[in-house]
């Protein structure tokens, strides 16, 4: 029972990280109609910025906090130099150009930080366990991730649903040309949203870094999962992204935690432990396919 609880929490934690990554993606997608494959690169850059800044400041919190404005700046630069020219183009151009950006960023990281992976240590004050229930220890860092992730998710929901900027974002998602016609500085809004997305992606990257590792291309595979999440949730929907991220987080963790034992009942232990992660990944894509067949624009997407 405790094991189950811990695995569910791990799923929540992964889901929240994925939500942070997917939130920026679904915003740029819903509002600017941009397929941004390079969003995973911003995730990677967040982790590398944090690695450098933590090294300079000798403090995880300070380094992480400094990395966020760096991500914002990078996002705004990418928006102004490349992304802005792509909004009016068709999806194929966007895929091609942002694919080029991925190659650029991966190689840039290799040139600056070197080919070998880096690691960020779990900060000392979180390098212990907390009892989530009496007698059930859970790593404090992962618990902190859940707390931070939840706070950021609530902040984002508040920003989108309750503030003037959020109102413009929602208006932009439903009709771009109309809000431009109403005199809103749409270029500024787009830069802001893109920068915001970069901050969330960077935050996800640097928070994941102590658990996984900081390496080239770390954002590429996770980006695909983020795309799956926004497609399941419905493009442009923050709520959909959150629900889908939670579902995907649970599938992934539960698959990893329980599939091996299940598979061992009818195949060898070695092939079961090799097949289980693959099957849990496959499950995610099957869920997505099922959702798209059932609702071709995702769970919370706009009907056309």
């Amino acid at each position: 029972m405790d094991y189950l609880l811990i695995q569910v929490l791990n799923g929540v934690q992964l889901g929240l990280l994925m939500f942070l990554l997917a939130a920026g993606l679904t915003l740029t997608f819903g509002i600017m109609d941009l397929v941004n494959l390079a969003h995973g690169s911003l995730y990677m850059m967040g982790a590398y910025f944090a690695w450098t800044l933590i090294g300079w400041t000798n403090s995880f919190v300070l380094g992480a906090l400094l990395a966020l404005p760096a991500c914002f700046l990078l996002g705004v630069i990418v928006e102004i130099v490349v992304a802005r020219r792509l909004y009016a183009r068709d999806h194929l151009d966007q895929v091609l150009a942002t694919f080029g950006l991925i190659l650029f960023f991966n190689e840039l990281v290799r040139a600056i930080w070197g080919p070998e992976g880096r690691s960020i240590a779990v900060p000392a004050f979180l390098n212990r366990t907390v009892n989530i229930l009496p007698g059930v220890p859970y790593p404090a860092y992962r618990f902190a991730l859940i707390v931070v992730g939840t706070i950021v998710a609530i902040l984002l929901a508040w920003l989108v649903a309750r503030t003037r900027v959020g109102m413009l974002i929602r208006a932009g998602a439903s009709n771009r040309r109309m809000i431009a016609a109403l005199g809103v500085n749409i270029e500024l809004l787009f830069s802001l949203v893109f920068g915001l997305g970069a901050v969330f992606a960077g935050l996800a990257g640097l928070m994941a870094a102590p658990i996984a590792s900081v390496k080239i291309g770390m954002g590429d595979d996770i980006l695909i999962v983020a795309f799956v999440i926004i497609v399941i949730g419905g493009i442009g929907s923050i709520k959909g992204a959150f629900v889908a991220a939670m579902v995907v987080g649970q599938i992934d963790i539960v698959g990893r935690a329980f599939l091996p034992d299940f598979l061992k009942t009818f195949m060898g232990a070695a092939s079961a432990s090799a097949a289980a992660p693959a099957i849990s990944q496959v499950l995610i894509y099957i869920v997505m396919a099922a959702v798209l067949v059932w609702r071709p624009t995702g769970l919370f997407g706009q009907r056309t």
């Binding site: 997608f29 397929v35 999806h91 895929v95 497609v231 090799a274 693959a278 496959v282 997505m288 071709p296």
Partner: peptide, 23 residues
């Protein structure tokens, strides 16, 4: 599906085959 959903679903099916083969 249409547009970007088509891009993503074809990508997802390809990933599915990819993970199956790596398993």
């Amino acid at each position: 599906t249409r547009g970007v959903y088509f891009i993503m679903i074809t990508l997802a099916f390809a990933q599915l085959v990819y993970y199956l083969s790596s398993g």
